[in-house]
Simulated assay, not measured.
Amino acid sequence: MIRAHGLPLAAILAGAAALMVFGLGSGSYWTIVALNLAMWIALTQSWSLFSGTTGYISLGHVVAYGIGAYVVAFSFKIVPLWLSIPLAGVAAGLFALMVALPVLRVRGPYFVILTFGLAELVKYILLNVETGLGKSSRLLFGAPKPDTLLWIMVGLAVAATVALYAVHRSRFGRGLDAIREDETAAETIGIPVVRVKVLAYAASAVIPGMVGGVMALRSTYFEVLQVFNPTISFTIVTIAIIGGAGDARGPILGALFLVGLSEILQNASPQIYLILLGLCLIGCVLFLPTGLVGLLHRKGGAR
């Protein structure tokens, strides 16, 4: 059985089942809330597959999301849905594989800036392509209902979580951990650093590509500036920080916290909820530097 820091795979499946029951049995509003929750879990788990294990903090995860959304919007009604969503993941993964070598030549803050710039570059390239095609946006009539999309998104969230758990327990994951601790030393002891980083970077883009495709169907409207919104990348990093990026449970806890807090504050104080949310996030960074997972570890140690 796959485990990560004591949490079994059965707990993941039970959580997915609970999310499905909650989302499908509580009305359309809560179906959308459950869909968004599953989306952020899938995105953050896939981000952690590379950034959480290697220490390379990426602000370009929205590239995979946007490419996936574009593939699904472009192929909508041309190829069946069961094919277009996997194609979105493949396209995002292939793009990440193509740019991995030049992108991964830099480290630290330079890598953060480069990934953010890459996201902006791809956004404006696709914007020019769409303008050349005479398309400022695309309407997706006849998209599946939110209930159907929730099934797909929960499946992607489970797949991302299981993949991260499996990587943590594998030799490949130990190689990524060694790269995070000391990349030069890892290469000295025989770890193929370049190959491991490239594979992890490409793998981390596959599920976000499929997530972007699903969310394009959810909005029934594709617009380049919308799907390449840098807020998506910033939110992923925020969830990872809140939950704890070094543990596969972190993205789940972080997403639950952020989505739940956003809904509560938005309903209670819609005029100032973003300010209140920002203050809560600052408090988490100051008082929970290791995230909610770190808090669980401290509680467990105290017991």
Rank of each mutant, 00 (worst) to 15 (best):
A42P: 08
I239R: 15
R195K: 03
S170V: 13
K77E: 15
V167R: 00
V33N: 13
G55C: 11
A185I: 10
T290F: 15
F50A: 03
A159Q: 07
G243I: 05
Y70D: 14
I12V: 15
F222N: 11
A245S: 02
A159L: 13
A10S: 14
I239A: 05
F222V: 09
L176W: 10
V194G: 11
R180L: 04
L114V: 15
G209V: 03
Y221T: 01
A178W: 10
R174I: 13
M98Q: 02
R249N: 03
G68S: 03
L274S: 14
A157V: 10
I242A: 08
P109K: 03
G52T: 00
A18E: 01
I113L: 14
R105S: 12
A203D: 10
A91R: 07
M39Y: 12
A92Y: 04
L24W: 09
T148M: 10
L261P: 12
K197F: 02
L104C: 15
G213W: 00
A38E: 08
D182T: 08
K123I: 13
A88P: 01
G250L: 11
A34R: 12
E183I: 02
F172G: 06
A163I: 07
I85K: 02
R171Q: 13
G190R: 13
G60Y: 06
G283I: 04
W40H: 09
T115Q: 05
S204V: 00
G175H: 00
S26G: 07
L164W: 01
A178T: 08
F76Q: 06
V227K: 03
M1A: 04
